[in-house]
Design a protein around this nucleic acid. Structure first.
Lengths: 223, 223
DNA sequence: TTCTTCATGTAATTAGTTACATGATTGA
DNA sequence: TCAATCATGTAACTAATTACATGAAGAA
């Protein structure tokens, strides 16, 4: 077992800083909260806490349920200090993996129907995620959600996610309109000049709000 | 070498469907285009094409530059068929990894200054990416970009990315305002009721446009 | 000519996933 | 009491990353 902490280690340490959890409870949090911004497989949640214990950042207590053992993890003072140090460090840049987008990027090698189906799937995913986010927000407002004392942090992250899912759904709708206008052979697809100008113009206006551009060496999707 | 194709394999196959590339040129594309939606390390781009060749989906030709060999890969007809089949398959859901968000989620265990610095870093990243995206769009409009015949696909994906980067930057600005109002001890931070209601209300309006919600079992950040 | 950057790869390591196994609990 | 689901973990595997090595080209 390597002894260097990864972002995954700190993410779990962060959960332990909220309260002690059994491993299974950690997997629930991965499904319902942390996994939205740092997705990891269940088995990781059984493995990483052992590393935290080995480094003295967490301690494990054995419990039993029937004759079966289970482990509950809690953060240590040393763990809290390590977490605080990590929060002050620079972060690695966000990373997005979107198979839907990859398929759209190469859409000319499939059919128009394929492209529309891919967009519909992306939209459905986003709508479902958005509904979940909204429901979580409503629950907080109603005081029905756990960890009310963490509402400020949850609101910040939840708002981002909610906006992101809305963006994906709206983009998919817009992109579907575009694809509808493609000829049946997608290799012949060309964007309407006016549409292209419209999106670039929109990006220009966004850039004004954003400020801070310099010279850029461009590729297909960015410098 | 496993013989099952991953999304990474197909992503590279998609690039080869555009034109033949040397491995180094593939790494350039990863830096400038594909990497925005399917990021992978350089060394993967030296490894995966070999698998495609082994499966008959691509062929390799040896070239030399000085006395040093280099490999150029091209897609085969069988490769084009495989790519087309893949484009018709369902996609795995998008995945976001954002260390910045993880730190905001656990911000109460650090200082207010840490949180603001994390948000500033996220905003700077987004602004830079947005500038790159905009520049790429401008280049296309000016006819100065390569692969003009792929403009329709590039516009779809590029618009999504541009909007995403703008969203991140705008969110970071909004979140910074929120954090500014926190007390010096972030464990005491509570969102202003009005702000919380405002974001939930916005999500409700988005949901109306999106349609399609049902009953949801909520966690902290979603069902 | 030497230094730096561009270019081309391989090797070693690891972070993470998938698959498996099984006990406990609950409801029909 | 049987089946389904919840809960707790381990083992095997692999996809991917980091580190390393070095030739070629261009600039100072």
């Amino acid at each position: 077992m390597s002894t260097t902490l990864t972002t995954t280690s700190y993410a779990i340490l962060g959960l332990l800083a909220v309260k002690p959890w059994t491993t299974y409870e950690l997997t629930q949090q991965m499904d319902r909260s942390l996994g939205r911004i740092w997705p990891r497989a269940q088995s990781k949640l059984y493995e990483e806490p052992k590393k935290l214990v080995a480094l003295g950042l967490a301690r494990a207590t054995e419990e039993r349920v029937g004759k079966r053992p289970r482990t509950r993890y809690a953060i240590t003072p040393k763990g809290r200090r390590a977490l605080a140090r990590w929060l002050a460090e620079p972060s690695q840049p966000p990373s997005l993996e979107a198979e839907h987008l990859v398929k759209m990027f190469f859409a000319e090698h499939g059919t128009k129907a394929d492209a529309l189906a891919t967009l519909a799937a992306a939209r459905a995913w986003a709508a479902e995620r958005h509904a979940g986010s909204l429901a979580a927000g409503e629950a907080y407002l109603a005081g029905a959600a756990p960890f009310q004392q963490r509402a400020a942090q949850t609101m910040l992250v939840g708002t981002f996610l909610s906006d992101l899912y809305a963006l994906v759904a709206e983009w998919a709708d817009w992109a579907s309109e575009q694809v509808e206008r493609w000829p049946d052979d997608p290799t012949q697809a060309l964007p309407h000049r006016a549409d292209f100008e419209a999106v670039v113009e929109r990006a220009r206006r966004q850039a004004e709000t954003l400020g801070a551009d310099g010279e850029v060496d461009t590729g297909e999707l960015g410098r």
